[in-house]
């Protein structure tokens, strides 16, 4: 009897939640919190979405974008804690949402975030200087293996995607690099062009200018399939001409960085669904396609269970690296 009543109440509650899901609509200005400083990849991602929402009037309320990039973005994710339950704070980031709490003592936990969606996967490539003697990724890895800990791998920041990828690369191939952290992909690119490091793993967007200028050259892409063919970047080659790292003989199946959107935990039911719906529409506009193509990312809309599965997998993979490298803080 009581159990049945409980069930009935449960259904009722679920029904009401469902109604709310249909009904939740913003009634005041929304703040988009960017977990990078102005000009960063996440900043461009957020402002692109904001401009598309405004152009197609997908949300009636005004949107204010604020940059909270301090502490590798931790400052932005902290909003989930300080504004718990506030559906007017939408947080834009990458996989550092769930990876940062491993490597630094922070005031928020991953459980303080409500997942909304991931809209794109940014790709990683292995780059060397244009006049380097290596024809293929395999050549380069063999050269590094022959003289361990003399080749320098540049990357942006520490204990972040670039260093994680470098660590994975070392583990699967046995090639030991000296990892040098710089500030941002732009600085890393300049260092490679000047021959001060031997390689880096910049995103396509970060190094397209230098590839065009004939200063650097990509060896392989850490993606399960080749990048889509676009207009040629140099005289002779375009993105689709770059082999996947697996083709090139490096057994790293994929390494990609999701561009993610979150809400604080404890937001009213339906708020996450509302934003998910809006973002889904954003991802179907021609402007979004243009952005994805221009920045050579992979457009892939993840939400609900597909997002959960992706996060769980990525989390597991990165956690293994963090544990092996001893980066995890207690």
């Amino acid at each position: 009897m009581t159990r049945r009543l409980g069930m009935a109440l449960g259904f009722l509650a679920a029904g009401m939640a469902g109604a709310a899901a249909q009904g939740w609509q913003p009634t005041k200005p929304i703040e988009f919190v960017v977990t990078s400083s102005p000009g960063g990849g996440t900043d461009n991602f957020t402002r692109m979405i904001q401009s598309i929402i405004m152009k197609y009037k997908l949300i009636d309320q005004p949107i204010v974008v604020s940059n909270k990039g301090g502490g590798s973005g931790a400052e932005g994710y902290l909003v989930s804690k300080t504004a718990a339950g506030d559906p007017y704070k939408v947080i834009f980031g990458t996989n550092n949402a769930y990876l940062l709490p491993y490597v630094a003592k922070l005031g928020y936990k991953f459980s303080d975030l409500t997942p909304v969606a991931a809209l794109a996967l940014d790709e990683f490539l292995l780059w060397v200087k244009a006049d380097a003697p290596y024809k293929t990724a395999k050549d380069y890895v063999e050269a590094v293996k022959a003289k361990p800990e003399t080749y320098k791998m540049g990357g942006s920041q520490s204990k972040d995607t670039d260093q994680t990828l470098t660590s994975i690369l070392s583990t699967v191939t046995g090639a030991k690099f000296i990892y040098v952290p710089f500030q941002g992909g732009g600085a890393v690119g300049t260092q490679l062009a000047g021959g001060h490091v031997n390689s880096h793993t910049n995103n396509p967007n970060e190094s397209i200018g230098q590839w065009k200028a004939g200063q650097v050259r990509p060896l392989c892409v850490f993606s399960p399939a080749r990048l889509p063919a676009g207009p040629k970047v140099t005289e002779t080659a375009g993105w689709a001409d770059i082999p996947t790292c697996k083709e090139a003989g490096i057994p790293v199946e994929r390494f990609q960085m999701p561009r993610t959107v979150w809400l604080p935990a404890g937001t009213p039911p339906g708020a996450a669904q509302f934003y998910e719906g809006v973002l889904k529409k954003v991802s179907e506009t021609p402007e979004w396609q243009e952005y994805i193509t221009r920045t050579v990312q992979t457009g892939q809309f993840l939400s609900g269970d597909s997002l959960k599965a992706f996060v769980a997998n990525d989390d597991k993979l990165s956690r293994e690296v963090f544990e092996r490298e001893g980066w995890i803080v207690k």
């Binding site: 301090g70 931790a74 902290l78 003592k105 922070l106 920041q157 520490s158 204990k159 972040d160 500030q183």
Partner: peptide
């Protein structure tokens, strides 16, 4: 944030100093 080591310095656990 110390960009070379990726650890937080001199914040003494205060999030405002992050």
């Amino acid at each position: 944030m110390d960009s070379v080591s990726g650890s937080l310095r001199l914040t003494f656990g205060f999030d405002v100093l992050l």
